[in-house]
Design a protein around this nucleic acid. Structure first.
Lengths: 192, 192
DNA sequence: CGGTACGTTGAAGGGATTCAAGGCTAGTGG
DNA sequence: CCACTAGCCTTGAATCCCTTCAACGTACCG
């Protein structure tokens, strides 16, 4: 924990593991996300890269000094922390109450949103993106087993909600169709 | 969302509800917890009091002004947000990977910790506290049904891990015994 | 005393897990 | 060049934990 930083390219995960090996992902770090916690010596969670990652890193101590000198930076940090908290709470709804199928659909939407920078153009109805996670990583994200992830992804494919290419490339013809599978109300903020 | 504030006495909850009624609690607000989000007009989640609550509240706009004038306040807000984020992540492990019994044990520990201000006296082995939540609220906290909550609480009682008085008062003779039921490693930070 | 909110308990059913086997693809070394 | 291995993914069958549905118990209150 000598450093803090920001993801520039690649994907990393934040996770927690129980003694017997059960694992839950608690953070998905995509480009622009912040890593580390100012004002804390130790790390509470495991950070792992799932692809090659380039990081823009700062030594923690000088960074903390910087926080004091630049009020805007701290303002930004607070904003980011609160956004993450909101995301964590959405995630809790997913983990606690959604079905396996809804979980998968939700994850696909989350990844799609983040990768496409989400232009607010309302006419976007198609979507194409890459899953940079293995089935196991998805399972850890969603609180499922990798078998269930595999089955549900293929079920969505069989039902024509998504199309797959080489297991990792997803193509969505009709976004609202996928949106309806997430269990979220209305458009889930996708078009805002 | 015209106000922000801090809980002084009582218990409130932060929750999210799906169209069909499924509900997940995403925040448990106990005395000293902060309510509301500076810099945001609308509320993303429902806040409900589960007991009578006294609140120390501030109009949001002046409070935001205060944040700019007092750097220490913003520092404190950031710290609180990051602590909440850590708590949310522990909660995610609970929701995604723990069994019903582990969930109940974990919830009991969480409430116990917060109500007893947790003196770091290591000799504490007994514990007595009140559940200010209904079975249904616990279910919403844990991502279970209220029936499962009821069954698991009574199972813990039958196994001698806890004792009950009038359904809401819990007495724990042997804390480590309860701790072992949570699925967390070691002491879960209880004695730190 | 009826009504309501909260809690318990039983029986049946189902969605996800567990266990097991096999397929696909890329990289490696003979 | 081609087995050969390793990592990832899929699929089936059986099992189990939790949910669902239903009935009943209890305490409090007008």
């Amino acid at each position: 924990m000598e450093f803090v930083g920001s993801v520039v390219t690649g994907v990393a995960t934040l996770s927690q593991t129980m003694e017997d090996g059960r694992r839950q992902m608690v953070g998905l770090l995509l480009p622009s996300d912040f890593v580390g916690r100012p004002g804390r010596e130790y790390a509470a969670f495991n950070v792992e890269a799932t692809t090659d990652v380039t990081l823009c890193k700062f030594a923690r101590k000088p960074f903390e000094k910087l926080l004091n000198d630049m009020p805007h930076l701290r303002e930004r940090m607070l904003e980011m922390a609160l956004d993450e908290l909101d995301a964590a709470r959405e995630w809790m709804l997913l983990l606690g109450r959604k079905t396996a199928r809804e979980k998968i659909a939700s994850l696909l939407m989350i990844i799609a949103k983040r990768q496409n920078t989400l232009k607010p153009i309302e006419n976007v109805e198609e979507l194409k993106f890459e899953l940079s996670l293995t089935r196991e990583a998805m399972a850890d994200y969603l609180g499922l087993t990798l078998e269930t992830v595999s089955r549900q992804i293929n079920a969505l494919k069989k039902d024509g909600v998504i199309e797959l290419e080489r297991k990792r490339h997803v193509f969505v013809k009709d976004i609202t169709r996928l949106l309806n599978e997430t269990g979220d109300d209305a458009d889930g903020g996708y078009f805002e």
